[in-house]
Amino acid sequence: MEMEKEEEELFVPRLVTTEENFAPGHRACIGCGEALAVRHVCKALGKNAIIVNATGCIEIISSLLPQTSWRVPWIHTLFENAAAVMSGIESAYKARVRKGKIPDKGVKFVGFGGDGATSDIGLQALSGAMERGHNFLYCCFDNEAYMNTGIQRSSSTPYGAWTTTAPVGKKSIGQATWKKNMPEIAVAHKIPYVATACPSYPFDLMDKVKKGVEIEGPAYIHIFSPCPTGWRYPTNLTIEMGRLAVETGVFPLYEVVNGEYRLSFDFPDLKPVKEYMKEQRRFRHLTDDIIEKIQARVEKEYLKLREKAGVK
């Protein structure tokens, strides 16, 4: 047992490719969880993929003319239509292969969007693409606000968090609504593959990306992407933030394969949410009773998820 574990520690990272299809030298902030997640996703995808990117931090930091960070074909057009552009690319490929115009080389089609691009303005286009059953993977990089435009709230911003459009004041605790559950919305489309992931768990993330692109039909991965700039925490804590979100149950990691839930990591004893929140200044105004309210909600949701995954 002991031996095996040691071997794992020694070798698993070495199994990961050193190829960087998302090149270094991009313009993301120090400690950016999104850029890290994109890097992992691109490692898992390899060269045979076409990426469609929505407007947002990732697009801005990677494509300033006349430079590009992308070593795979990449296209950005607008904020809310990545899944729609993807539909067109995938259909073009299908039609052209069928008509004998190009050989079938098993190209993968992958959409990238922030939480705003995914669960707010681009929800309709994504829902349409999932419903129509295109063969693609969509990755939502969730940093829980519109970061590119300066930390405005989205429907994915957690309850109680400060943002520039959910400011804290005499009559406001910050974000007054609960985070939209985007993975569940994807599940409701009855697509073959839905998962949550986080760059603090890189091997899990890469495995999920590989599964997502291999599966025939739409796949959706919701990637928790800590953002030091928007969440107001020290830049060296990004990995820690992701770990704590998972270990407190704030952002559980799971998969839903053909409707079957499976927890990727289970924590029978969740850490208190306070541990996750304390380093983030977006939560620093919250009183104990609000934190308790959040704690209760997280526990309840986690139990529901465990039940769905059949964990006693």
Partner: peptide, 15 residues
């Protein structure tokens, strides 16, 4: 909006 976006994608992919 999606119709035109899909045409953009398909055209960019050579169709």
């Amino acid at each position: 909006h999606t119709a035109m976006s899909a045409c953009v994608g398909a055209s960019a992919a050579g169709a």
